[in-house]
């Protein structure tokens, strides 16, 4: 009886094996060609002097070495870190605040959420171009500034201090929508009786938020934080379109630098080296977050 059962099980398992082969092969073939192969190739390319046209030569770690020696690299790294430090906390705070604000007492919540989400899905170059018009010299921001203060307005996109601030604001404008939706979904899923019990106990709104809502929401918060940090290290389109990395290299980020290295100066080896530095940074920061999550993220009961 038991051997019979075992035989049937192994037949089922063999059938499963064939089914798995059929189910997985489209994905695995594509994955191999378009993920694994380029991933390995990018390590290889980063070890070469690899112009798009012409001879390539093996140079070992030279690309990484000259990258770390280039002052531009340290500038774009600093710019990227400034962007991350300004953008991520502001994004989380604003989107969480809005998600809480759009509470069940607000009528038409779906509409509010959708409209705050809107800039996340409108073409980002369109967004950037609109911001360019608003912040260009003589544009809405500058004219309003001088009407209000009576003085001369700064050249927002042409000043090395203002340009990064505008890049951050544009990124916030189009970036908070996703997190707003994630927090809203998290808030909607909170058990109503817990919230009610907290109110009956006389917990004030602020205390209720810090001691009940926030811990219950911590898985969503963790998810949003990880994703937002990862994407902020990859910021590209906003500085590229809005300021072109300028003035000078004041808003040049790691990825705009990568683009210029690989696709304007056609130095594929160096571009791949930059890419691995970006990846390394992202892995480091994500690993730190996963290590730290035990302290503040509460899953389930």
């Amino acid at each position: 009886m038991s051997t019979h059962l075992a035989a049937r099980r192994s037949r089922a398992r063999a059938r499963d094996g064939w089914a798995a082969l059929g189910f997985l092969s489209p994905m695995v073939i594509g994955f191999g060609l378009f993920m694994v192969y380029p991933l390995i190739a990018s390590i290889v390319v980063s070890l070469y002097d690899w112009p798009v046209f012409g001879e390539r030569t093996f140079v070992g770690l030279d690309n990484y070495r000259s990258l770390l020696d280039a002052s531009t690299f340290w500038t774009v790294l600093r710019n990227t870190l400034v962007f991350v430090l300004a953008y991520v906390p502001a994004n989380i705070a604003i989107s969480l605040g809005l998600a809480v604000w759009i509470s069940p007492r607000i009528r038409g919540r779906g509409l509010y959420r959708a409209l705050f989400f809107l800039p996340a899905v409108t073409p980002l170059v369109a967004n950037a171009v609109v911001w360019q018009v608003i912040f260009s010299p003589g544009g809405f921001a500058a004219s309003t500034w001088s009407s209000v203060t009576g003085g001369e307005a700064p050249n927002f996109l042409g000043s090395s201090t203002w340009a990064m601030a505008v890049v951050v604001m544009l990124s916030l404008w189009q970036g908070i929508g996703y997190n707003l939706l994630i927090f809203s979904a998290g808030l909607d899923a909170l058990p109503e009786d817990v919230m009610e019990a907290a109110t009956l106990d006389g917990a004030g709104t602020v205390r209720r938020f810090w001691s009940i809502v926030l811990p219950l929401l911590s898985p969503s918060l963790f998810f949003a934080l990880v994703m937002t940090l990862i994407s902020s290290f990859q910021v590209f389109a906003q500085p590229f379109v809005l300021t072109g990395g300028g003035p000078g290299d004041a808003t040049e980020t790691l990825v705009t630098y990568l683009y210029r290295t690989g696709f304007e100066r056609f130095d594929m080896g160096m571009a791949s080296a930059v890419a691995w530095v970006v990846f390394g940074l992202i892995m480091l920061v994500t690993a730190l977050q996963f290590l730290g999550q035990r302290r503040w993220v509460h899953y389930g009961d």
């Binding site: 694994v36 190739a41 990862i230 571009a271």
Partner: peptide, 21 residues
Amino acid sequence: VCFLGTLMVPQEVIVTPMFLL
């Protein structure tokens, strides 16, 4: 696990070889 390992790979890392490919 092999799949999961690539979840975090940013597009930029493979954009250069993808262009060549």
